[in-house]
Design a binder for these strands. Structure first.
Length: 810
DNA sequence: TCACAGTGACTTTTT
DNA sequence: GTCACTGTGA
């Protein structure tokens, strides 16, 4: 079959190494692909090439990634070149695990309609299976159990000591696992660990897999854990000489999930585990300017534990990244907002921009600042929506419909709203169900007569309700199981996508069921009361969930698909228009695989990034995280670091991140209030005025002088540019003011004392008109106290807050 | 069984 | 500063 014109076009776009990787055959292949080296292009082209040039059956190709976003992108791009790639399995590791387990549920000992327990559910189940544990203890065990499963260690493993030194751990783990099996459900770790066990214990299933998947590709291989490695080995049948073609792509410098069990050794040892492996390196970077790449290289070279690889820039020089020192996180947010607004005013778009931070909590300040300044934004990867109480309630109801042995879901909703069924009654029902191997609804019906009147009536109502909803799903026992293996049909296609399965014009979708549950279960009323008291949006949130559900058909399969889509990808709450023009707020971890024209990496402070307790290998992982962040930027990179930060309601004074010093003197253009210690550390004060010789790079109007960075020398020393990033043009020529105000504060020697002298009238957007009542110099900062007409007094740092505080001419 | 108020602990990072 | 947990009182 000749290559389609599209494929020809794509092939012609590849560089020699990429082309070699695409056309490689026969032996296992390890592609070491640096950031921005076009690895997704290689994988997708390879899929298309295999199908159209090598006549590989698209259904026999399995490509796994780590995030659903990456999987979707891969599928789209492969299909663009070769439409039949639609039939290939392009999924996340976990969703493939879920698919596998549903198909071989019996062999795995789980319910075919299982749902996936999240971390919270794990904690609850641990507390039930090992009574007496505090929540925090259970949470700690949950963490260890998850880690054990990442290493594919079952409860009876002799190597559990590697995961936890707690002598009770094995016991707690075993009790949990037993209880989990009795619910028929699985947790995240099971999605990988159980398939590995199934494949090890069932030679025929393993053989089916080897027969089914002739080509297996893994993206972001550096972040695979031991369980995933074993899964890959078992699926490919490398030890059985199955002849399956295996190709993995990764970058050891971007390994950032060690804490979750990712094992860099997987990539370092790949050639040993898969004999005859060929290695291809992709080191040409097409994404970033060389100034940005230089910064990335300067950072990562401080790591010792790496294969070593140097990216070369295929793009032009570009602008040197800016490193901006700011007083605190409010100013950090304000700075970012102003920077973005200015750029958009000049014709840029919001979606060019991404704000990166180390921890989710840091997004809050940006959110409120952006709301205030009317900057559209989206927060990526926040779990908040699915963690909301009302959403979890509704999901628990759905989970119970899917699997009526789900005790966690049962407990959550059986007494909500109150039906007189407290923990004691719940325990009774669950114990009875276990004893007789019944589902919880059957057990409820049997047990109801023995309960008190109130409890009995409540429980009877509840089980009737559940039954009626189950009926609407077409009854869970209706068989659809045909466990023929691969070749004949393609039963997977429907599992793959969400939007495609929408029944056109059908009123009977899952959304209507969700709405009905809201109303009839009393959850709507229950949360409505809350909305009225505390002004929350709970009912609206539930409605939102119903809207999402309406994309799925009203059937058990539709329900399972819906629950999977939520459980396996909680980051993608924003399936809404990707086309909307808005700023992206995102954790550094979540940026893996993404790119943006303009990137701001925030919070480069000791204790925040890197976190305080990091050293040795963990510090190296933090450093790689910084490297990942830097290499997301295409055209412009900004890095901010704050002198103080509010934590736990207290203000902590911060030191600049050690990573900044490591990067060296020439890597960034320094702006703002550079801490003297930092300046000494990186080069004994390299910022002699002459070093601004490269100013020409920035004088092109991108942000012309005085727009962002006020030229007024602040400290006298070294004639450095200062960082009054506010619109200084608002202030007119300073000579108009000087004399009188300076004489009003004769004692204070500070460059800003002239502009912001005692008695100066000012205007603030939020507080209105006021007058400077007091001025002082603290820690080298010029601080003014403003008495506002509305009665309040506020402190300001004119060096940074000029934008909010306008001087009023008299 | 539930509602409330006071107290303590707390922030990684994610499928 | 915020959230979740605990104990008290109705």
């Amino acid at each position: 079959m000749p290559a389609t014109p599209e494929l020809q076009k794509y092939l012609s776009l590849l560089n020699p190494e990429q082309k070699q990787a695409v056309e490689h055959e026969d032996s296992p292949l390890l592609i070491l692909a640096g950031a921005g080296s076009g690895k997704t292009r290689v994988i997708t082209t390879k899929i298309a090439w295999l199908i159209s040039e090598k006549n590989v059956d698209p259904r026999s190709i399995l490509a796994v990634t780590f995030t659903k976003k990456a999987a979707n992108e891969m599928r789209e791009r492969a299909q663009a070149m070769e439409p039949s790639a639609e039939e290939s399995q392009i999924r996340t590791f976990h969703s493939f695990g879920a698919y596998f387990l549903r198909r071989y549920a019996e062999a795995a000992g789980v319910d075919k309609n299982f749902t996936v327990y999240d971390d919270d559910d794990m904690v609850t189940l641990i507390q039930k299976s090992t009574p007496g544990l505090k929540k925090s203890e259970a949470a700690s065990y949950a963490h260890s159990i998850a880690l054990a499963k990442d290493y594919c260690l079952p409860p009876d493993s002799l190597r559990l000591g590697e995961v936890s030194s707690d002598p009770l751990f094995a016991e707690v783990y075993a009790a949990y696992q037993k209880r989990l099996r009795s619910t028929g459900n699985v947790d995240f770790g099971d999605l990988i660990m159980l398939p590995v066990q199934v494949l090890a214990e069932n030679a025929n299933i393993a053989r089916q897999m080897h027969y089914r998947y002739r080509v297996i590709m893994v993206d972001e291989y550096q972040d695979s854990n031991v369980a995933q490695f074993l899964f890959l080995k078992a699926l490919s049948g490398v030890d059985q000489d199955s002849g399956t073609y295996v190709c993995v792509v990764g970058d050891d410098d971007q390994s950032i999930y060690k804490f979750r069990g990712a094992e860099v050794q997987n990539i370092l040892n790949f050639q040993k585990e898969f004999p005859g492996t060929q290695l291809i390196r992709l080191e040409r970077n097409y994404r970033s300017t060389s100034a940005i790449l230089n910064a990335a290289n300067c950072v990562i070279k401080n790591n010792s534990d790496r294969l070593g690889k140097t990216l070369s820039a295929e793009r032009g020089d570009g602008k040197k990244p800016d490193l901006i020192f700011l007083p605190n996180q409010d100013d950090e947010a304000a700075f970012c907002a102003e920077l973005i607004k200015k750029q958009v005013k000049k014709g840029g778009t919001y979606s060019d921009w991404a704000i990166l931070y180390r921890t989710n909590a840091q997004s809050l300040v940006f959110e409120s600042e952006f709301l205030h300044k009317r900057i559209p934004y989206q927060v990526v990867g926040t779990l908040k929506f699915y963690e909301r109480e009302e959403i979890k309630d509704l999901l628990a109801f759905l989970a119970l419909l899917a699997n009526s042995k789900d005790e966690i879901a049962f407990r959550r909703i059986v007494n909500k709203p109150a039906r007189g069924l407290g923990p004691t009654s719940q325990d009774k029902i669950i114990d009875a169900a276990k004893e007789k191997s019944q589902d919880l609804i059957t057990a409820s019906k049997e047990l109801a007569p023995s309960l008190s009147k109130k409890a009995r009536e409540g429980l009877e109502k509840f089980s009737t309700l559940v039954d009626s909803f189950k009926e609407k799903l077409g009854d869970s026992t209706a068989a659809s199981a045909s466990d023929d293996s691969a070749a004949s049909s393609n039963p997977d296609a429907s599992n793959d996508s969400d939007a495609d399965t929408v029944p056109a014009n059908s009123k009977q979708n899952l959304g209507t069921l969700v709405e009905e549950i809201m109303q009839k279960s009393g959850l709507e009323e229950y949360h409505q009361a809350d909305d009225e008291i505390s002004g929350t949006q709970r009912v609206a949130n539930m409605q939102e969930l119903a809207n999402n559900a309406s994309l799925y058909p009203l059937s058990m399969d539709g329900l399972l698909e819906f629950l999977d889509s939520i459980e396996l990808d909680r980051t993608l709450a924003s399936q809404e228009d990707q086309s909307l023009d808005r700023v992206t707020l995102i954790t550094l971890h979540n940026t893996k695989g993404l790119e943006f024209k303009r990137v701001i990496i925030t919070g480069l402070e000791q204790g925040i990034f890197p976190r305080a307790d990091k050293s040795g290998p963990e510090l190296e992982e933090e450093r790689r995280l910084f490297y990942v962040g830097i290499t997301r930027a295409q055209d412009e990179l900004y890095i901010t670091s704050c002198a103080a930060r509010r934590m736990y309601g207290r203000t902590e004074f911060m030191q600049p991140s050690v990573f900044l010093q490591e990067a060296g003197a020439d890597t960034f253009r320094l702006l703002g209030n550079v801490p003297p210690s930092f300046e000494r550390a990186i080069n004994g004060g390299f910022l002699g005025g002459a070093d601004f010789g490269d100013e020409g790079d920035y004088g092109d109007g991108e942000y012309s002088d005085g727009d962002f960075y006020d030229d007024t020398p602040q400290y006298g020393q070294q004639g450095r540019r200062s960082n009054a990033y506010g619109a200084s043009s608002n202030f007119g020529a300073s000579s108009n003011f000087g004399a009188s105000s300076a004489s009003a504060a004769p004692k204070i020697k500070h460059p800003l004392a002239k502009k912001y002298g005692l008695g100066q009238a000012v205007y603030h957007d939020d507080y209105g008109y006021g007058q400077i009542a007091k001025a002082e110099v603290r820690d080298g900062e010029y601080v003014i106290h403003v008495q506002f007409q509305n009665g309040g007094t506020k402190k300001f740092l004119p060096a940074y807050q000029a934008a909010q505080l306008m001087r009023v001419e008299e």
